[in-house]
């Protein structure tokens, strides 16, 4: 079982290498180039394929610590997926709703979800942090973060 993890990883790496190679072979040529844009990528693709093979053949066992790292409970997986989902929503709405609102909501909701129980501190931190950053960037540094629905 232990050796298998490395071999599975090797297979994934090999797939990446093959996809990359396919794309490299489809790069359009440029007539005037001595060494065209596809030369190095092809080399990298074959190199990765070679390393994947080495990894596949590598008999070295994983250490206990390595194995331990991968033990994640179902609850934890859900935690990670929810946080990732919240980041996605943040990115999606950032330019529509604006920096201040989104950042305040994100910090508050995300901390809340991760079991932060001090709601008052949470509200204060999220509001003050986003207003401070926004004010700093937009007014002091003149680098405009999206205002969104707010009029300032």
């Amino acid at each position: 079982m232990l050796a298998k993890t490395n071999q599975k990883a090797a297979l994934v790496v090999a797939v990446i290498a093959i996809v990359y190679l396919l794309l490299s072979f489809n790069l359009p040529g440029y007539t005037n180039a001595l060494i065209d844009a596809d030369v190095i990528p092809k080399g990298l693709g074959f190199l990765l394929l070679f390393f994947a093979l080495l990894l596949y053949l590598d008999k070295k066992n994983e250490t206990e610590a390595d194995k331990e790292k991968r033990k994640i409970s179902k609850q934890h997986v859900i935690n990670l997926l929810v946080v990732a989902g919240m980041i996605l929503i943040y990115i999606f709405l950032l330019e529509m709703i604006g920096f201040v609102v989104m950042t305040t909501v994100f910090i508050f909701v995300c901390s809340l979800y991760l079991d932060y129980k001090h709601h008052v501190t949470n509200v204060i931190t999220s509001v003050v942090f986003s207003l401070a950053i926004y004010g700093l960037f937009n007014y002091l540094l003149k680098i405009n973060l999206p205002a969104g629905i707010l009029p300032f």
Partner: peptide, 22 residues
């Protein structure tokens, strides 16, 4: 906790709807 979380999510949606003016 769950409830509070739900409220926050709902308010997020409201804000989205309000953002679509031009």
């Amino acid at each position: 906790m769950k409830k509070l979380f739900g409220t926050a999510a709902a308010s997020l949606l409201l804000v989205t709807a309000a953002g679509c003016g031009n």
